[in-house]
């Protein structure tokens, strides 16, 4: 029974990493405004969201498994506050940090119609921090670290995200490359030599 928890915790962690990779790649895909993998734009955005919610489910399983696992001896405190764990605190801290970041991203996304687009987007940029933190946590903390299959999985995920970011930064990313950038004209920005003397 205890072994089952341990294996479940490790497996769900890896599945969460794979799902987060899918989320990041589809998030970039959705940003491009192009259909992808035969899916229309709104479907890309829906799969992006649903994969993120599924990743949360697996992460919750991962954390609960470790909380109740006698080997891991994870304290509740460690789930929330990073870099204070007993076992490999730095690598475990990455996991905690990733969890905190993901919680912030998911909660603000679910509340984005209330928060407004500015606040939501600002928090959403943390995705680019969350994903590498999760990857490092898996590579450095997991009991499976050093196994060929975890390396293969991690490298595949890294390759997918790197390719997506490369595409994001390339000139062919925008669907309408000739479209003018929307930004407020500097002449209209607030006057600093204010008149209220």
């Amino acid at each position: 029974m205890t072994d089952a928890l341990w294996y479940f915790a490790r497996g769900s962690g890896v599945v969460a990493l794979v799902l987060l990779t899918v989320v990041v790649v589809l998030g970039i895909g959705a940003r491009s405004g192009r259909p992808a993998f035969g899916l229309p734009r709104f479907a890309v955005s829906l799969v992006h969201r649903n994969a993120a919610l599924l990743a949360v489910v697996f992460l919750v399983g991962h954390v609960i498994g470790l909380l109740f696992d006698p080997y891991a001896q994870l304290r509740f405190f460690d789930v929330v506050v990073p870099f204070v764990g007993n076992y490999r605190p730095v690598w475990q801290g990455f996991g905690t940090l990733g969890l905190d970041l993901l919680a912030a991203i998911v909660i603000t996304s679910l509340l984005r119609h209330r928060l407004g687009v500015r606040a939501w987007r600002a928090v959403h940029w943390l995705a680019y921090l969350c994903w590498p933190v999760a990857l490092l946590h898996g590579l450095g903390n997991g009991a499976d670290r050093g196994t060929w299959w975890l390396w293969a999985t991690s490298l595949t995920c890294a390759a997918a995200v790197t390719a997506a970011i490369g595409w994001r930064l390339s000139a062919t990313f925008d669907r309408f490359p000739a479209r003018a950038e929307r930004r407020v004209a500097p002449r209209l920005r607030p006057h600093l030599e204010e008149a209220s003397r």
Binding site: L188, R189, P190, H191, A195
Partner: peptide, 28 residues
């Protein structure tokens, strides 16, 4: 009455731009 600088720009006098400028957010 508080005076506020209006930028020399065509849209700076638009109603909502004036309201925004007076509130300190730029004449947009």
């Amino acid at each position: 009455v508080t005076p506020t600088v209006a930028p020399d720009a065509f849209v700076a006098g638009e109603e909502s731009a004036a309201a925004s400028a007076v509130a300190g957010r730029g004449a947009v």
